[in-house]
Structure formats: structure tokens, C-alpha cells
Design a protein around this nucleic acid. Structure first.
Length: 748
DNA sequence: GTAGGGTTAG
């Protein structure tokens, strides 16, 4: 065997190999000959395997080796490339690096570039940096390699820093550099930087590069500049699936799912076939608009394309089903997943929470914690939303306690959700504690607290907070005013509410349906029904369900049948399948004893296949929620409850309580009516609360419907008779009963 | 060696 050194970059090997069977041992001897040249590397690598790869590259088969004198050039660069490519650890790279330096190859930039790329692939970004810094005069490839390393590890700040160092070093960027830089701008939401990069791209003449173009579209979309993204997109002649996906997801991310879907159909017309990432974006848009049918058809397409095993696409499908209310289907997918990732957990939990499956949401959240799966602020927010729905203060306390010990404790979004949760679970005091300890309160934090006060009918506190908010230099928004107007309504501050409504224009806030509905409610509460009607007629926007609903409520309170009928007509045409409107009208008729009309409404409902929602009340005792339905006798302690109920009834009568009979749905005779009223679920819950808690304990009740006049009146009496605070959350708001009065001032 | 995706939403 002969070995001729050809300077430092290659050797030529000539060898006559004797026998077919000896191939591996021949390789071994070959190795043995090379080894002294490279003592350090030879020790650490699977040298023969590498050499075999190498021989293949030069089309030297074992056959050749066995039958002829083999004569080939051993190229050192390729040799190093093989070594670098096959490295699996930093120590390998370090040896090669040392060897390169020792062989005088340190100037061979492309090998160092390779070394840096592989280091970065192995996650050794610090090491890559060290190698980079030791290289005397890096070219654009080397700069790109180190920038790529930072980019692939989402270290976008470092990408930008290296980019500016590169510019200072006087090295011109290329298309690759700009792809990385734009991606970093997207990641950092650094629009200013993105603008500058765009300018430089034009100056360098890279605006026609498809990668650069796609990166620009994505950057503008991520930085909420969807119009600019669109301008770039519209200017493109060649659009790849990546371009289309960027603009589609851009619209979806910027809250314009309809436009996203419009562009998707354009894409289909251009005969561009979607891949799984494109479908993920499309699914997101259908998820946002909660279009189950279209979502399902995407699912069909996924199956047709054979993409149903793409894990991340399955996650999007699960999220779509969960958000569109198909939680059982979603759960099926969820269960199929071997190792659900955080996004999937979040999609499932928020799907449950959003669709009223609060128990399931909380259960899944507990499961995550039990399994030590790390959660993020999105998980926590979905769980908080579920707790707010459940309405259990005990559960709310548990959630709060968990968050205090987690990394989310200073997250503004999480704290806002906590304020909302406590308010909805009946405790403004705890809501206020969260509010007070939230640093850097933004307008939404202030608004959440104001809405909380509104929910509980504490109008004065809401208005005080509004002034404090302005004092703190925070500008109110439309939600703030919804909270304020609601607060005024719920506590009878008619003048103040009217005044606040007119302050909205000082902040350039266009009133929306909710604001108008609040004003109608305010006027209605004051008994100014014709003013309320005029106000509606002069609205600059078409009055919607909430506005007519407010008018109908007021008509019911003041027994104004003709106006009430008019409002109901509007409601029936806008929202024909909402049972509540029919019940309201029926109650209005009942209040003036127009039993024929009550019957007519009942027939109307029957024709439309509607039935009155079953009322139920929940009461929390020792952290457990107990449900009571109207006339429910299934409770294990029903006997005791009914004894207590009778006792209460007797005491109520003695105290001079006269049942109101006009709020019932049926035109029954007096005795029957009274009995049904007595069994109203709220009363059952109170009776149970009284027998299962020590004297003086506040009773907390949650109802699914609005409070009825009779129960409301009775609960006022009871609060005085038994000397208890009773907090009732109905479908609309909170009632705090104490000493015979309710915080709502008898208007709700 | 470059570009595109998902979970929340007061």
C-alpha cells in the first residue's frame, strides 16, 4: 500500500486487495495506515464506517477493492466533512476543531461554517459562538451560520445583535441573512426593525427572492400589520404554498378569519394544493368563526389527503371540535393521543370551559397538576373561566391559592381573569384583593373590577373606581362604560348612568348595543317608558335583542302591555327560538291577569317546539355544590329539608309575607300556585343551607334563571327572619339579601 | 444553511 501526501488537503491511496472475504480487515489495515496521521480523531470515531461511506462516494465498491489496484484521491476536506456530519457530541467537534487548527486549516471557512452548523444542530450554541469568535475574518456564510444557530433556538435578540455586528464588520448580508432577520423580527414583534430590514432588502435588491418575500409577509402579519402583509402578498407573482399559508394565518391571527377563508378559496382556485400546515391555518379560521360544518369538511379533506396521522393537524382538529361545542368528539381525539402536548391540553380544557362543561374543565386541569404536567397562562385562564362558571367560592379559593404559588401570579391576564372569577363567585372582597395587588393595572384590569361592582349592584364603588382610574392616568374604554352603566342600573343610579353615557363621546367611544341596552334599562327603571321608546327610535344603529329585551323587562315591571307586545314582536323576529322572550311576555300578561294572552303565548311556544327552561338552584355547603330543581324530592335529606321548608313557610306567613302570584307561568288557582312557588328551587336550596350550616353563615346560591318576583320577595323576608346574609347569583347579576332588603333595590 | 401552523380573549 502506498500513500502519497498531496500537500495538506489530500492523499492518494493505492492498494491491491487480495481476497473478497478480507474486506473489513482490509479496511482495518487501511485505517491503520491513516491512523498515525490523525491520532486524536482516529481514537474517537467509528473510522471504518466513515471510510466505507467515503469509498461509496467515490464509487469504489468492495468488488473493485478485491480485483484491482485501487487508486483514488483521498480528499481531506470531504474527510473532515464526513467527520463533522457524523459528530454526535461537542467533544467530537472540539477534536476536529483542534485538528483543523493544528493542520493549518483554520482559514478554511467552509469547514468552520459546517462545524458551527452542526454544533447548533446539537444545541451547542455557546460552543458554536466560541468557534465563531476564534475565526479571524468571517464571511457571509459564517455569519449566516451563527445567526441561523440563534434563530433555530428562538434566540431572536441574539439574531438581531449578530446581524448588527455583521453590518459593523462590513459584511454584506444575503437572502439567507434576511430570512433569519425577518423571522427574528416576527418573533420579537419588532416592527421598527422589520421596516428597516425591508428597506435594506430593497437596497440590496433581494425583493424578488421567494424566501425573503414570504418572510416579509409573515413578519408584517405577525407584527399586526396585516395591510402591509397584504400589500407585499398582492405584489407577488410567484406564490408558493408558504406564501398562501402566511397570509391566511396572518388574517386568522389578526382577527379576520372570514378574509382568511376567502383567500383560502382563492388559493384553491389557483390550483395550489394545501399541505398540512396550510390546513392547520384554515382550521384555525373555521375554529374562530365556530363553523362546525366547514370544520368537518376540512376533516374530510384531511382524510382524503391521507393526512389524518399528522399529529399537529390532529391537534387543530381537536381544537376545532372542542371550540365548536363537540366536546365528546374532541375528547375522543384527545384520548387517542399518546402524549398530548400543552397546546392540546389547553384546547381541550378551554373547549370544555367555553361550552359550559365547567366540571370537566376543572377536572382535566386537576389531572394535569396531578400528573405534574406543566401548565401555562393559557391553561390557567381556561381553568379560571371554568371556576367562574361553577360559581363555587371554595373552588375559586383553591384556584387562587394554586396561582399564587405558580409562575403566573404576576400575569396581568391571569389576574384579570381572577378578579372576574371572584366577582362571579360572589366575593367582591377577594376580587378587590387581587385588584389591589395587581401591579401595572391596564384598562381591562380596572374594567373587570368595575364590572364586578356592577354585577353586585355597587354603583357608588364602581363610579369611585372610575374616578380613581382616571386619576391613575388610565383611559376608559367601551367595556369600562358597559361596567359603569350596568353598575348604575343595578343600583338605581339613573341620573349618574345617564350622565356617564354622555361622557363616552369625550373618549371617542362609539356606544354599542350593550350601552344602548343599559340606557334603555335605566330609563325603564325610572318608569320613563315612552322616553325609552324614543331613545330606541333615535339610535344610530339598528336596535338588537339586548335593547328590545331591556324594554320588555321595563314594560313587565310597569305593566305596560302595548309597548311590551311591540318589544316582544321585535324580539320574536330577531331571536325566534329564545324561550326567555316568550316567558317575559307571558309574565307581563300574567301580571295584568290577561290569562287568555298567557295561554296564547304558551300555544305559540308549543308551535315552535319551545319549552320553559327547567329552573334549578345550586348551593355551596362545605365546598360542595348541591343542586335543587323545582319540586325536586330526590335529595337524601329531603325529609329534613321539607320540615325546614314548612317551618319557613309558617314563619313567613306570620311575618306578613304574601306570595306574589303573577310571576308564575301557569294560570292555576291560588293554592296550586302557592305550592309551586314554595317549591321554587331557590327556597329548597335555602332550606338545605339553613339545616346544614351553623347559624350566621352566609348562604351562597346560584340560579340558572333570573330571580322570580316571589322568591326574591320571600328571600328578603327570610334573610331577616333567620338573620343570615344570602347571596344569590341569578342569570344576570348578584343579589345580596340582608335584614329584609336586597342590594338590587327590587329592580333587576 | 433560508420562509408558513395550533391553545386564551377580560
Amino acid at each position: 500500500m502506498a500513500m502519497i501526501m498531496n500537500k495538506c488537503t489530500s492523499v492518494t491511496l493505492t492498494r491491491k486487495l487480495s481476497h473478497p472475504c478480507c474486506f473489513s480487515s482490509d479496511l482495518f489495515s487501511l485505517t491503520a495506515n491513516i491512523r498515525p496521521l490523525y491520532p486524536s480523531t482516529a481514537k474517537s470515531f467509528e473510522f471504518p464506517a466513515l471510510l466505507l461511506t467515503f469509498l461509496n462516494r467515490y464509487s469504489v465498491s468492495p468488488f473493485h477493492l478485491n480485483n484491482a489496484n485501487v487508486h483514488f484521491t483521498f480528499d481531506f476536506n470531504s474527510f473532515y466533512v464526513s467527520f463533522i456530519d457524523n459528530s454526535t457530541h461537542k467533544t467530537h467537534l472540539n477534536q476536529i476543531h483542534a485538528h483543523l487548527l493544528a493542520s493549518g486549516l483554520q482559514d478554511c471557512g467552509f469547514l468552520i461554517t459546517k462545524l458551527i452548523n452542526v454544533s447548533c444542530n446539537l444545541g451547542e450554541i455557546r460552543y458554536a459562538c466560541k468557534v465563531f469568535d476564534e475565526f479571524p475574518d468571517p464571511d457571509v456564510f459564517l455569519w449566516n451560520a451563527i445567526i441561523r444557530g440563534y434563530s433555530m433556538h428562538n434566540m431572536f435578540g441574539d439574531v438581531i445583535e449578530m446581524y448588527s455586528r455583521m453590518q459593523m464588520a462590513g459584511v454584506s448580508p444575503d437572502c439567507f441573512t434576511f430570512s433569519y432577520v425577518l423571522k427574528a423580527c416576527s418573533g420579537l414583534l419588532a416592527l421598527e426593525m422589520g421596516w428597516r430590514a425591508h428597506g435594506q432588502i430593497l437596497r440590496h435588491g433581494f425583493e424578488l427572492d421567494v424566501f425573503v418575500q414570504n418572510s416579509l409577509v409573515a413578519m408584517y402579519a405577525k407584527c399586526s400589520q396585516i395591510r402591509h402583509a397584504r400589500m407585499v402578498f398582492d405584489g407577488l407573482y410567484d406564490r408558493t404554498i408558504v406564501t398562501w399559508t402566511s397570509i391566511i394565518s396572518g388574517y386568522a391571527q389578526n382577527g379576520e378569519p372570514i378574509e382568511a377563508l376567502r383567500i383560502f378559496s382563492q388559493m384553491r382556485q389557483s390550483n395550489v394544493k394545501p399541505d398540512w400546515i396550510a390546513l392547520v391555518s384554515v382550521l384555525r379560521a373555521y375554529t374562530d368563526v365556530e363553523d362546525l360544518e366547514q370544520g368537518k369538511s376540512v376533516h374530510g379533506y384531511v382524510i382524503k389527503m391521507g393526512l389524518e396521522y399528522e399529529p399537529d393537524l390532529l391537534i387543530s382538529l381537536t381544537a376545532m371540535y372542542a371550540k365548536c361545542g363537540q366536546v365528546t368528539v374532541a375528547r375522543f381525539f384527545f384520548n387517542q393521543m399518546k402524549l398530548p402536548n400543552l397546546i392540546l391540553w389547553n384546547a381541550m380544557i378551554s373547549g370544555y370551559a367555553k361550552n359550559g362543561y365547567a366540571e370537566e374543565a376543572v377536572g382535566l386541569f386537576r389531572e394535569m397538576i396531578g400528573k405534574n404536567i406543566s401548565v401555562d397562562s393559557i391553561t390557567v385562564r381556561a381553568a379560571i373561566l371554568a371556576c367562574a362558571q361553577v360559581g363555587s367560592l371554595e373552588l375559586a379559593r383553591w384556584m387562587d391559592d394554586y396561582i399564587m404559588r405558580s409562575e403566573c401570579r404576576d400575569d396581568v391576564f391571569v389576574n384579570t381573569a381572577l378578579i372576574d372569577m371572584y366577582a362571579k363567585c360572589g366575593s367582591l372582597d377577594f376580587a378587590r384583593i387581587i385588584f389591589d395587588r395587581t401591579l401595572q393595572k391596564d384598562v381591562v384590569v380596572w374594567s373587570a373590577m368595575i364590572v364586578g361592582y356592577g354585577l353586585h349592584g355597587q354603583g357608588r364603588e364602581a363610579i369611585d373606581l372610575y374616578h380613581a382610574m382616571k386619576q391613575a392616568g388610565v383611559c376608559p374604554n367601551d367595556v369600562t362604560f358597559v361596567g359603569l352603566l350596568m353598575a348604575c342600573n343595578h343600583s338605581g343610579l339613573v341620573e349618574e348612568g345617564w350622565e356617564l353615557f354622555h361622557r363616552m363621546k369625550d373618549y371617542d367611544i362609539e356606544p354599542r348595543h350593550q350601552h344602548y341596552a343599559c340606557v334603555v334599562d335605566l330609563l325603564g327603571r325610572a318608569g320613563c317608558l315612552s322616553q325609552a321608546y324614543d331613545f330606541i327610535m333615535n339610535m344610530p344603529i339598528e336596535p338588537g335583542v339586548s335593547v328590545w329585551g331591556a324594554l320588555l323587562s321595563a314594560c313587565k315591571i310597569y305593566r305596560h302591555v302595548t309597548l311590551g307586545e311591540y318589544a316582544a314582536e321585535q324580539l320574536f323576529s330577531l331571536d325566534p327560538y329564545n324561550t326567555g322572550h316568550y316567558v317575559q311576555l307571558s309574565n307581563l300578561y300574567a301580571s295584568v291577569r290577561l290569562w287568555d294572552c298567557v295561554a296564547k303565548v304558551r300555544v305559540l311556544m308549543k308551535e315552535k317546539g319551545l319549552s320553559k327552561d327547567l329552573g334549578y338552584s345550586l348551593i355551596e355547603v362545605n365546598g360542595k355544590l348541591q343542586a335543587f330543581r323545582v319540586g325536586d324530592k330526590s335529595h337524601p335529606r329531603y325529609k329534613e329539608i321539607s320540615v325546614e321548608l314548612e317551618r319557613l313557610e309558617k314563619r313567613l306567613k306570620e311575618a306578613g309575607f304574601v306570595p306574589h302570584t303573577d310571576s308564575v307561568f301557569h294560570d292555576l288557582n291560588y293554592e296550586e300556585t302557592e305550592e309551586i312557588l314554595c317549591n321554587h328551587s331557590e327556597r329548597l336550596a335555602i332550606a338545605y343551607g339553613l339545616i346544614s350550616t351553623p347559624p350566621g353563615t352566609t348562604l351562597r346560591i346560584i340560579k340558572n334563571l333570573r330571580a322570580c318576583v316571589n322568591c326574591h320577595s320571600a328571600t328578603k323576608f327570610i334573610s331577616k327572619l333567620v338573620n343570615r346574609k344570602i347571596v344569590v347569583r341569578d342569570a344576570n347579576r348578584f343579589h345580596h339579601f340582608k335584614d329584609g332588603v336586597c342590594s338590587c333595590g327590587d329592580y333587576w
